[in-house]
Amino acid sequence: MSISVENLSKHYGSQRAVDDISFEVNSGEILGFLGPNGAGKTTTMKILTCYLAPTSGNAFIDGKSVLDHADEVKRKIGYLPEHNPLYLDMAIFDYLHFAAAMQGVAKGKISNAVKDMIKICGLESEKHKNIGELSKGYRQRVGLAQALIHDPEILILDEPTTGLDPNQQTEIRSLIKSIGKEKTVIFSTHILPEVEATCDRVMIINKGKIVLNGTTKEIKAKSVGNELLNVRIEDFDDKSRMFKELIALPTVLVVEPLNDGEGKYQIQSKPEASSKREIFNLCVNKGYVLTEMTPIEASLEDVFRKLTN
């Protein structure tokens, strides 16, 4: 079940919330949707779920347009909106029954679907409570359960882990990951490690435009550029000689002494070269004491900051 977005725009007055974006999500992929607040993530999701009509452009779920086949599209999607709105005065059990019936689950299958969801989402101990009595973590599980109740092929989750404690975040994340094995998932988040842990692909959107789209690996590779190493060489008195010896290595481009600690340097290698061996050999040959050599990976956070600032 694939998603295809073509030249989608949504304007609120003069403001362009989503500005002519196009992308594809392949069947079975988990796509992390990143971007600062107000970048257009939620608007895009609302268009995909047929809640809002785009100003121009179109989106297709499995080849069906969100404009012309809303009913069919909605049935294929499980949606968890931002802030997880729920009927607080309803019991979990009743609410899931209602959600199932609304999504067209056959009458004879509703009971089983509800039972399965309660089990999968870990609501067993709370199932007879009213939603209003639940803690935030459990409400989020109810939100996920109602999105999954009709076994949709596509899941769209708008900040599913916001406001949860770290344990709950991990639980919801692993739930998404296990569900995501058979489904196409789009989810938005501000928590960057979450994306690295869960997603196959990342899309960063800023001011209504896609600024980056690729697998987490690709993105990191793209942003790293030259290899960066933190190196500490101890018990060495003549610092300027050390510096000269390091910069003289054939693969080294820049050597920058670091302030936090004696004999620490950040070394940038020339493009597509690695200096690890050279530094090690230098130390061995000259008898220097090498106590640290740490490669610095550009985190997704750096990429995010660079692209959205």
Binding site: C50, Y51, A70, D71, E72, Y79, P85, Q103
Partner: peptide, 14 residues
């Protein structure tokens, strides 16, 4: 007010 309208209208109803 609570935003449940969004959840309701994204179910397969008109």
């Amino acid at each position: 007010r609570t935003g449940t309208i969004e959840l309701l209208l994204t179910k397969s109803v008109s």
